[in-house]
Deep mutational scan, measured.
Amino acid sequence: KAVLCADHGEKLQLFCQEDGKVICWLCERSQEHRGHHTFLVE
């Protein structure tokens, strides 16, 4: 069962290295995470 983003309802499948947390693809494109290094997690 996928864990969903509290903000967007999308699957949490990216790890943001700068923030040390898992985010969704919409979070990654938001101003908050712009320019951060993210990695796909399974």
Rank of each mutant, 00 (worst) to 15 (best):
C16W: 01
W25K: 15
Q31P: 07
V22A: 10
A2C: 07
S30E: 08
H8E: 02
Q17K: 15
G9L: 06
A2K: 14
F39Q: 14
K21P: 01
L26R: 13
F15A: 06
F39T: 14
L40R: 11
K21D: 05
C24T: 01
F15N: 03
A2R: 13
V22N: 13
C5R: 00
A6Y: 07
G20S: 04
H36R: 02
V41Q: 15
A2P: 10
C16S: 05
L40P: 14
G20P: 04
C16P: 03
H33V: 02
R34M: 10
C16V: 03
V3P: 02
A2N: 13
H36C: 03
G9T: 03
H33G: 01
L4N: 15
V22R: 13
L14C: 07
A2W: 10
K1Y: 11
E10V: 03
L40C: 07
V3A: 12
D7K: 12
F15L: 06
G20V: 03
K11W: 15
C24M: 00
H8K: 03
E28C: 02
L26F: 02
H36E: 04
F15K: 12
K1R: 05
H36Y: 00
R34Q: 10
A2H: 07
L12D: 11
L26V: 10
C24V: 00
H36A: 03
K11T: 09
Q31E: 08
V41G: 09
D19I: 00
Q13D: 09
C27G: 01
K11I: 10
V22E: 08
A6K: 11
D7I: 11
H8C: 02
E10Q: 09
Q17I: 15
H36T: 01
C5P: 01
H36D: 03
L26T: 11
C5K: 01
H37C: 07
C27I: 00
K21C: 03
K21Q: 04
C27Q: 00
L14V: 08
F39P: 02
E18G: 03
C16N: 05
C27F: 00
F39R: 15
R34D: 11
A2G: 15
F15C: 12
R29G: 07
K11M: 11
L4W: 06
R29C: 03
E28L: 05
L4I: 13
S30G: 08
R34H: 13
R34S: 11
G35I: 04
L12S: 15
H8V: 00
Q13H: 10
G35V: 03
F15Q: 13
D19Q: 01
Q31T: 10
W25Q: 14
H8T: 01
A6I: 04
Q17R: 10
L12M: 15
H33M: 02
D7E: 12
H37R: 12
C24R: 00
Q31R: 07
K21E: 12
A6L: 06
F39L: 12
V3H: 04
